[in-house]
């Protein structure tokens, strides 16, 4: 793996204002709050966390599908958060997204040919025959048969639809792909197919993935590095090996202990967190996790911990990291 940084995200922040009306200034949801990480070329970085922790929002911010409130997204040396719209459109083909729900991510009125070929529309130098050839090649790459060319999305199964979504993204020849829980709507057997497809495509096309997921088994299978997110902030970021062998943040430990394992006889010490995830409308002061942290001490509720390097490549945001 080369160590060239393809994407560098710094202090990325998105606040949504909800409930604003004429007489009410509304409340602020801190969906993503100061997230920083970088992605190497050819790497898969997984973003894990519970529902509503802001991981999907982070994915959309990285692609500038929604504008950030603050922060920078540097893609190959350019800050795309501040790029003018016309320049951004030229960069768009470089970064693509695969969505979670294969039912709402395909326009029901378009055929396979139109869905996959949509991205080629902005390349007028291609002839009709070339376009068709590219679409058919891409269909073969993702495992769709040529006779599917003129069909509509409703004629496909969930797994096939997800392949369609993958094909639509990859025909753009992207360098960076944000995969927003691409497997969570699929059956387990189909998940395996799509995971292997994604892994193969990454190898063949030299892609970098920002892989958003809450399924730790898949994350362990596919990632190079893993970032753990809680309530809009990164809690821990490390290589897969480091993180699974020795999680340093209590939240990571709790999260991993909750994942089912297939190993027989491996006794697990499950850490049951009490209470619910606090609302991002009014996140707790200090460390966001302190209200549920089994190891919280007094200072955790006062001071927000910095996201700092504990060991080479191992970032943690905790005042009292484990195994310290």
């Amino acid at each position: 793996m080369s160590l060239k940084t393809i994407l560098k995200v710094e202090d990325l922040t998105k606040y949504f204002v909800v409930g604003r009306s004429l007489f009410n200034s509304g409340e602020v949801v801190k969906a993503v709050d100061g997230v920083s990480f970088s992605l190497m070329q050819g790497e898969t970085l997984s973003l894990v966390g519970e529902s509503g922790c802001g991981k999907s929002t982070t994915g959309r911010l990285v692609l500038r599908l929604i504008p950030p409130t603050r922060g920078t997204v540097i893609y190959q040396g350019q800050d795309i958060a501040k790029l003018p719209a016309d320049k951004m459109r030229k960069l768009r083909s470089d970064m693509q997204i695969i969505f979670q729900d294969p039912w709402s991510s395909l326009n029901p009125r378009m055929t396979v040919k139109e869905i996959i070929g949509e991205g080629l529309r902005r390349q007028p130098e291609l002839s009709r025959a070339q376009r068709k050839k590219m679409v058919l090649e891409m269909m073969e790459t993702v495992g769709l048969r040529p006779e599917h060319y003129d069909r509509h999305p409703h004629e496909f199964s969930g797994g096939q639809r997800q392949r369609l979504g993958v094909a639509r993204a990859l025909i753009m020849r992207p360098k960076l792909v944000v995969a927003d829980e691409p497997l969570s709507a699929l059956d387990v057997s189909v998940q395996a197919q799509v995971v292997n497809l994604l892994a193969r495509l990454k190898r063949d096309l030299g892609l970098s993935y920002l892989f958003i997921s809450h399924d730790l088994a898949i994350v362990e299978h596919i990632s190079d590095r893993i970032a753990v997110m809680y309530l809009g902030k990164l809690m821990e970021l490390a290589s897969k090996r480091q993180l699974f062998a020795q999680p340093r943040h209590p939240y990571t430990q709790a999260l991993f202990s909750a994942a089912p394992t297939t190993e027989v006889g491996r006794e697990k010490n499950r850490i049951i967190l009490s209470g619910d995830v606090p609302s991002p409308l009014n996140p707790p002061k200090g460390c966001r996790f302190h209200t549920r942290c089994p190891l919280a001490q007094e200072d955790c509720g006062q001071l927000e911990p910095e996201f700092k390097l504990l060991a080479p490549g191992h970032w943690v945001a905790c005042h009292h990291p484990l195994n310290d």
Partner: peptide, 14 residues
């Protein structure tokens, strides 16, 4: 809000 609209945006469509 549908994802196919976001996908189209991601492709660079206006």
């Amino acid at each position: 809000e549908k994802e196919f609209v976001e996908a189209s945006k991601a492709i660079g469509n206006g």
